[in-house]
Design a protein around this nucleic acid. Structure first.
Lengths: 211, 211
DNA sequence: CAAATTTTTGACCGATTGGACAAACGTTAG
DNA sequence: CTAACGTTTGTCCAATCGGTCAAAAATTTG
């Protein structure tokens, strides 16, 4: 019984191979951008021939689109968890920590997203002005509530969120630069812990309510 | 007398046309990335034919290289001006303001740079580990001096610089996202002044020496 | 087993790419 | 005027691009 809604209805092989392709495509797209990446590169990284890859994804854009859809869900998860209940400073601290952990653990996803935005977000603009804006506005209201209640210092919630995004994602998107500047001694694995300490001091201490 | 050092020795037309090409290339490269841009696009944006463009720059890479060389000088100028003499908080405040002004006035340059770093900085890696690291280390020492003297609060100078870079450049590199989230009412020209106020509060208030 | 279906491949296509080249054109110095 | 030099263009090329297709190979189903 085929319903009007399109159901995936995928074989075991299809599921596995599609995952393999998406993993390879994430690697390639995140370092070369969409136009800078070729189907051949992705196919080779996935260990299959180009026509075989095109059997699973008919067009190059389809791979990118699937990747972006998945990305946005996991990418915004930390912000979604920012909750009204619970201590404001604790909430913000764990939000910053989670975002920094994502920059550390999923740098390719961060770069893929950065690439898309840098080029004017041609493929996800509607999502930015829709779903994303709604979410940010909602959380900005929560933060504003904390400020009105005197729980944290008064600032612009939107620009606060932007700054948290910018500083945390910087360690994924500009990783080469960070490591080059820090050098061999400080650019090792410890750089994320240093960053975590610094960002906590910058944001959390800075947000403590002023007497 | 032709010296062994290569001297430009350019015609007036050559100078003008090269500028025209570089201006066009900045526009194209910053929005499409290096591999995503074509010589035809640049030639059309510069109002000339492709062979004519290739008369002034033999290879596509030459245009990009020239652009990157110029970029780095102007890009690091604000940090170079960060001076030991003068009030520390004033110095840092004007550094942040200058960086934000550059994000506002030269977003294409910022995106060009971001594109290069995102893709692993294949063409400017030596500069990052050399000239840039030297400059940052030098300024970090200056900042550390201020901290030791009790003029500003103690933090990690390197990550402080990273955060200033990240937050200010965010308004150029992620401009589409910022405007989409802020919406029609707050996403207008005033967003840079809002950002300036927020960043001053975040960094400067946060850096005031603790009693 | 055999038939049906899914997966994989090699060969191929038109379009676009970066770049070469010689010829034509324009400009200027003697 | 004319020879030399600087500039511009049309044409062309090999390589690469995204994508098609029919047929072979592998797998699943009955």
């Amino acid at each position: 019984m085929t319903t009007s809604m399109e159901a995936p209805r995928r074989t075991r092989i299809q599921q596995e191979k599609r995952e393999l392709i998406l993993e390879a495509a994430l690697e390639v797209f995140s370092t070369n951008g969409f136009r800078g990446s070729t189907i051949d590169q992705i196919a080779e990284a996935a260990g299959m021939s180009k026509p075989n890859l095109l059997y699973y994804f008919r067009r190059k854009e389809d791979i990118h689109e699937t990747l972006m859809q998945r990305l946005l869900d996991t990418w915004l998860a930390p912000l979604r968890e920012l909750d009204d209940i619970g201590d404001p400073l604790t909430e913000l601290r764990s939000y910053i920590r989670r975002k920094l952990e994502m920059a550390r653990d999923f740098p390719r996803e961060s770069r893929l997203f950065a690439n898309e935005i840098l080029q004017g977000a041609p493929r996800i603009m509607p999502l930015l002005a829709g779903e994303l804006k709604t979410l940010v506005d909602e959380k900005a209201t929560v933060i504003k509530g904390w400020m009105r209640a005197g729980k944290i210092a008064k600032t612009d919630p939107w620009h606060l969120i932007f700054s948290i995004w910018a500083t945390t994602q910087h360690y994924a998107d500009f990783d080469v630069q960070v490591r080059a500047v820090l050098g061999a001694d400080r650019g090792g694995d410890g750089r994320f812990e240093d960053a975590a300490r610094f960002l906590e001091q910058l944001f959390i201490d800075g947000l403590k309510p002023k007497p």
